[in-house]
Design a protein around this nucleic acid. Sequence first.
RNA 1: GGCGCAUUCGUCUAGCGGCCUAGGACACCUCCCUCUCAAGGAGGAGACCACCGGUUCGAAUCCGGUAUGCGCUACCA
Length: 492
Amino acid sequence: MNQTIRVRYAPSPTGLPHVGNIRTALFNWLFARHNKGKFILRIEDTDVARTQPGALESIMDSLRWLGLDWDEGPEAGGPYSPYFQSQRLGIYRSIAEKLIAAGQAYHCFCSPERLQAMREEQTKRKEPPRYDRHCRDLPAAEVARLRGEGVVPVVRFNIPLEGRTVFKDLLRGEVSFENSTLDDLVLLKSDGYPTYHLANVTDDHLMEISHVLRADEWLSSTPRHVLLYDALGFQPPVFAHLPIILGPDRAKLSKRHGATAVTEFKEQGYLPEAMVNFLSLLGWSLDEKTELMSREELVANFSLERVSRTAAIFNLEKLNWMNGVYMRKLRPQDLCEKVMPFIESGLGPEPKCPVSDEYVSQITPLVQDRARTLREFAEFSDFFFYEDLKYEAGMLLKGVKSRDTALHALQTARQAIAELPRFDATSLECLFRPLAAELGLKPGEFFGLTRGAVTGKTATPPLFETMAVLGRERCLKRIDVAVKNLSVLKPS
RNA sequence: GGCGCAUUCGUCUAGCGGCCUAGGACACCUCCCUCUCAAGGAGGAGACCACCGGUUCGAAUCCGGUAUGCGCUACCA
C-alpha cells in the first residue's frame, strides 16, 4: 500500500473529552506523524440531543494542550470540507437514497413505541433483542398509505439474512460474524441526521481515510460497516481496534474514578509532555524497558504492531511519578513560569506576599524535587506566600522534650538570628549547629522546632535555604508568633 | 440471553517454541545519603504465565474446550 496514510480522530461533541478518548486521538496522531501522513479532526455531531455547546472548544483545547495538531478539520480547513457532520446532511441523504434505489436499504415506519414493546417481548422470551424487519418488505401501497398519514420514516440497512462477514483487524487478526446475528440498523434517523454508522462509513470513504484506529467498543459494529462499504461499492479502510481504558475497579473509566477529563488533568497541574508519555504507554510499548520518551521519540518509534490488545487500567500513581520526573527535568525558569498561575489561583483569599517572578524563582529550586504536580508545588510552597501561618501550636512540640525547652530554644534562636551579620543559608547553618549543642539539643530537634515556627509545617525544603528565601524579618516575626503560641500552651 | 474480544507480578507491560529457575516500570519494604520531606543510590518481596486437555524432543508462547472479565446488542456515539 503506497497511498498516503490518512487517519482521523472523530469525537462527538457531547462533553469533555475523556482520557481514554484522547488516548485514541494520540495513537492516531502518532501513527500519522510516524508515517508522514495526515491527521484529521472530524466532528461527529449527529446526535442533536446530546450535543453540548462548549464541547467542541474543549476537544480542541485538549488536543492543543497535548500538542496533537490536526492537518484538516475545524479551524484548519482542508480539501474535504466540511468536517462537521451536521454540515454534510445532504451527502448522507443522497447515499441513503442510492441504497434504497439499489434495494440495499428501506424505509421503516415503526414507531419507537412499537420497537420498544417488541424488544421487551423478545427479552421476555429470552430471545436476542433485534429489529424484526417488519418494514423490510412493505408493499408499495402500504408505504404510500403511511406516507400519506405523515409518518416520517427512518432508513434501515438491509443486512443479508445469511452468510458470514469476515474482516481483518490489524491487532486481532481475522474477525468473523454470522450475518444472522446482525439486525437491520438505522442509517438515517427521522430527523434527517445520519447515525454514526452511515456518517462514519460515508465520510471515511469520502475523506479517503486509510486506517481506522478506534476504540475496541466498535469492533462489534465493524461487520455492519464492512457490509455497508460493500453495498456502496467502497473499498473499506484498514481497521485496528484499540484496547479501552478502565478505572481501578476494572469498570470503564468514568467520573466516579476522579479526574477523567483531559482538561481536569491540566487544571490539576499535570504537564502535557508527561501526559503524552504516560498515555502512550497505555496500550503501547517500545521494548522491555524504555518508559520515558519525548514526543519526538514517540513519533519516531510508534508502531501499530506494538499496540497491545488488552484493556488497561489507568494508574494514577504512575502518572504522578512520571509527572514528577518531567517536573524535575524542567529548566528552573520554565518551571517558574508554569507554576505561577497555580500559585496565584491556589492560594486562598488570605493576605499573602506579592507573587513575583523574582521571589518564585528563588523558591523553585527548593521545591522542584519535591512536587509531583504544579498544584502540589503551590501547596508545598504556600507558607512562602501567606503572611500569617495557621497551625496547631502542639505541632511545634513534636520531637521536643518539653514546652519550656522549646520556648527557650526559640528565644535563643531568635536573638541569634537578629544579630547574625549575614542572613544566608550557610551563615544560618554555621550559627544553628553549634547553637543546638549549646542548648543541649540534637540538631534534628532544634532544626525541626525552628522549621515548625518558621513554616508552620513539619515537612519542608531544607531549613536554612528556606529561611534565607523567607528573609530575616519574616523569620523573626514568625518565631515571635511561635513563642506566643507556645506560651499559652500548658507547660509540659 | 446472543455475538465478539481479551486473560503474564496489586497496576502498566516485555515475551511472538528452546536465551524464562519469566525481564522492566509504578506502588510497597529494607538499607545508604540526610535537619524534616523529597530527590538520588543499593537491595528485597511480589506472576505455579486464568484453568483443563492437546500438538511438540521441548509451550507463557501453537490448537481446542472451560471459567472469568470487558464490549456491543438504541432513530447514542
